[in-house]
Amino acid sequence: MRLLVAEVTDGDVQWLDRRTTVTGLGVGVDADGRLDESAVDRTIGVLAGYGRAMAEAGVVARRGIATSATRDAANRDEFLDRAELALGFRPEVVTGEEEAALAFAGATRAVDAAPPYVVIDIGGGSTEFVLGADRPEYRTSVDIGSVRLTDRILKDRPASPEQLAFAQDAAADALAGVDLPSVSEHVIGVAGTFTSLSAVSQDLPAYDPGRVHGSTLTVPRLSELVLYLSLLTVEETAAIPSMDPARAPVILAGAVVAAEAVRRCGVDTVHVSEHDSLDGIALALASE
Rank of each mutant, 00 (worst) to 15 (best):
P91H: 08
T237L: 05
A246Y: 05
H186C: 08
V59M: 02
L3P: 04
V178E: 14
V267C: 07
R19V: 01
G45P: 00
Y117H: 05
G96S: 11
L3M: 02
A176M: 11
R62G: 13
T216Q: 12
V272P: 00
D279Q: 01
S201R: 10
S242A: 15
D279T: 00
A69E: 12
R109Y: 05
R42E: 07
T233Y: 04
D30R: 11
G51H: 00
R62Q: 15
A248H: 05
G49H: 09
S146R: 08
I120V: 14
A73I: 08
T269C: 13
T9A: 15
I65D: 15
L85R: 04
R82I: 09
G33R: 02
G11F: 06
V183M: 13
S126R: 04
S201C: 07
E98P: 00
P241S: 02
H186P: 02
A199Q: 13
F166S: 11
V118C: 07
G192Q: 14
D81N: 03
A53P: 00
F129L: 13
V256Q: 04
S196T: 15
G123R: 00
H186F: 12
V226I: 15
L175H: 12
S141C: 11
A39R: 02
P181I: 14
F129E: 15
A167F: 14
E7I: 01
S242P: 08
D276I: 06
F89Q: 08
Q163V: 06
D268E: 14
S160C: 10
R19T: 03
P158E: 05
G58M: 04
D208Y: 03
R247E: 07
T140I: 13
A282E: 10
A73T: 06
P136W: 06
V8I: 11
H213E: 10
G64Y: 10
A6Q: 08
